[in-house]
């Protein structure tokens, strides 16, 4: 191997790399965030937009809400999305349109005051949404320095990076299949394994109580993307509602604790700065059939919740 041959090898590999990227860009054009992006950009007129992660994606029933409210709504919920992604979804809906009159932001437990930092290098799969939209909407949430921003702006042009989640999902499916050999099949719904949904919630009442108290005592602010979203809504004259989404009845003991109650008061106070109304729907559903797993509403539950939500929003106004 001489230098000329080595250079030729590099050129061929670069060509292969480029082709690979083109192939991925085309082959993975129908992943969840791509479809959501197209749906949000091509939507018909709407008055209400629902933003959030899978609790909104599964829990906000557009048809039921529209029937009950007489308005047109759109569900911009994105499963497993972080707040930066939810903010991008919000921007996709509202950036060039003026028809949105109300925004519903769905969340649960202490999520909106969870200050765990996010980093753009961890964005993939459903969280790849910012790579497809205007980078100025997301750059401040995922980048810690100017150098980080430069790398982010370059990396978002490489499909092998931005679409890696689509590949990894397929590998994960294979791993789960292999790991499940010889065991009864795990129950799944559209958000993954049902047993995994339990991991989203704090299971220890003492820790839950302590967390609530600590947030209130240290006056933890809203996470930046949510604070920005609500501020923008206020500036645009869009009425904003934050909904603490329904959770199964066996969680009631958590929401009867003083730490949680103090947290709700504190959250209401935080939201009042942007004129956002808090709708506490945590205990709205009693029936097991309202839930698809430990966190997400079933179709029946979503219809009931969305109907009641529209009434609660009218009352709140």
């Amino acid at each position: 191997m001489n230098i000329r041959n080595l250079a030729a090898t590099f050129v061929i590999a670069l060509f292969g790399f480029f082709t690979l990227n083109l192939g991925l860009d085309y082959g993975l054009r129908n992943t969840v965030p791509h479809v959501l992006q197209r749906r949000l950009l091509n939507r018909v007129t709407a008055d209400v937009v629902a933003i959030g992660n899978s609790v909104i994606a599964s829990g906000f029933d557009v048809a039921a809400f529209d029937r009950a409210s007489g308005m047109h709504s759109i569900n911009a919920g994105l499963g497993a999305a972080e707040f930066a992604q939810q903010y991008v979804a919000w921007k996709l809906v509202t950036n060039e349109r003026t028809d949105i009159k109300q925004v519903v932001f769905g969340t649960f437990d202490y999520s909106v005051t969870n200050t765990k930092p996010t980093k753009w290098t961890t964005w993939h799969s459903n969280n790849a949404l910012p790579f497809y939209a205007d980078p100025s909407w997301s750059i401040r949430y995922g980048c810690a320095s100017r150098a980080d921003e430069v790398v982010y702006l370059l990396a978002r042009r490489v499909p092998l990076f931005t679409e890696r989640g689509g590949l990894w999902t397929k590998v994960e499916t294979l791993r789960r299949y292999l790991g499940g050999v010889g065991f009864p099949a795990a129950q799944i719904n559209r958000f993954g394994r049902i047993s995994d949904s339990k991991l989203l919630l704090e299971q220890n009442t003492e820790v839950f109580e302590r967390l609530g108290r600590s947030i209130v005592e240290t006056r933890v602010p809203l996470v930046d993307p949510v604070a920005d979203l609500l501020k923008e809504a206020q500036q645009k004259g869009i009425a904003s509602f934050m909904v603490l989404m329904p959770l199964p009845a066996d969680r009631r003991s958590f929401y009867a604790m003083p730490g949680w109650k103090a947290y709700v008061v504190y959250l209401r106070e935080l939201l009042s700065q942007t004129g956002t109304r808090l709708i506490e729907a945590t205990e709205w559903s009693d029936s097991r059939e309202d839930f698809a797993d430990f966190v997400h509403l079933s179709e029946i539950g979503a219809a009931k919740f969305s109907t009641r939500l529209s009434e609660a929003m009218q009352c709140a106004k």
């Binding site: 590998v171 294979l174 791993r175 789960r176 299949y177 292999l178 790991g179 050999v181 010889g182 065991f183």
Partner: peptide, 22 residues
């Protein structure tokens, strides 16, 4: 790393529940 799909089961809980060939 893909083989960890099998080897992650080498713990007492899964061993107790598994069939011999596994």
């Amino acid at each position: 790393d893909v083989l960890t799909a099998f080897t992650m089961h080498l713990n007492s809980t899964d061993i107790s529940a598994a069939q011999r060939w596994l």
